[in-house]
Design a binder for these strands. Structure first.
Ligand SMILES: [Mn+2]
Ligand SMILES: [Mn+2]
Ligand SMILES: [Zn+2]
Ligand SMILES: [Zn+2]
Lengths: 142, 142
DNA sequence: CTCCAGTTGCGAATTAGTCGCAACTATGCA
DNA sequence: TGCATAGTTGCGACTAATTCGCAACTGGAG
């Protein structure tokens, strides 16, 4: 257990947002300035393997980065709004049941699950609805 | 509708495996040699936006690429075995119900869903089980 | 047949992620 | 305490994935 790993783990655990590698590096450096980018990548792989963190795409709303978050007791899924970029987190027993069904039917020993949903949040859907009413003839780009 | 787009769409539709951009480019070139890598990226973005294809990570078992497949009537999920690399596809009404619940509770207009699961397939789980029995004291890398 | 909005190829640029290796350090042991 | 060393790190160069600007091209409407 090195100072670098401690800083990275604490940063992820106390983070309020989903962190990509660049943000993770910057924030971890506030705790421990001697951290290198390569160490972040290596540690993230390590923690993924240990099942301590999950990796997310968040629908690639902001480029091709990956995001990381602590793995908590109950898995949650992520809803990403294509319009406003908002990320909604959501957990439900139905998801837990689905995982059990997947494991049972396929005889598969689940270690990680990742459910990401893209679409429009309620307010953005409402805005788009209103726009369509005002402009009944759709333009060439919908 | 250009020859390039036609070739790319047909290639994805008739593909038997999940295609990354490099494979997609190679296979599409067999139909239409005048295709450039940039066009593949641009077309893939287009088709994603139109909801004609889905993008997958497949747990990044083979590097950081993304994979593409035609979007069919019923969404299916992907199970990736960390040991042998096998990808299992699976569809179930429970997943469809979960999506409806997500949309209803969050008032979210779903356009894309992506459920990926990582773990061990049944045969790899059995092998690991046997290995543990023969070697009761676990090594430092479990 | 003409025209042009939209698409493409090209090649360079950017960005994310990886790697080899020498220097360093946590940790178990004398 | 100090030593040995397995494992970790920083560095910097590298690879791979993706994006971009722009001039040339083309599908298809008229
Ligand atoms: Mn989250
Ligand atoms: Mn990804
Ligand atoms: Zn929104
Ligand atoms: Zn397997």
């Amino acid at each position: 257990m090195t100072a670098q790993r401690r800083a990275l783990i604490e940063t992820i655990q106390e983070a309020t947002a989903h962190l990509d590698v660049a943000s993770l590096l910057m924030q971890a450096r506030e705790r421990e300035p001697r951290i290198n980018r390569a160490t972040v990548y290596r540690t993230v792989e390590l923690l993924k393997g240990l099942g301590m963190i999950d990796e997310l795409d968040l629908m690639h709303l902001n480029g091709e980065k990956h995001y990381y978050e602590v793995k908590t007791q109950q898995d949650h899924l992520h809803l990403a709004c294509f319009e406003c970029g908002q990320i909604i987190e959501f957990a439900t027993p139905a998801f837990e049941r689905l995982k059990q069904e997947i494991a049972a039917i396929n005889q598969f020993a689940i270690q990680v699950t990742r459910l990401e949903v893209g679409g429009l949040c309620s307010s953005c859907a409402a805005k788009k609805e209103k726009r369509l009413q005002q402009e009944p003839k759709p333009g060439p780009r919908g």
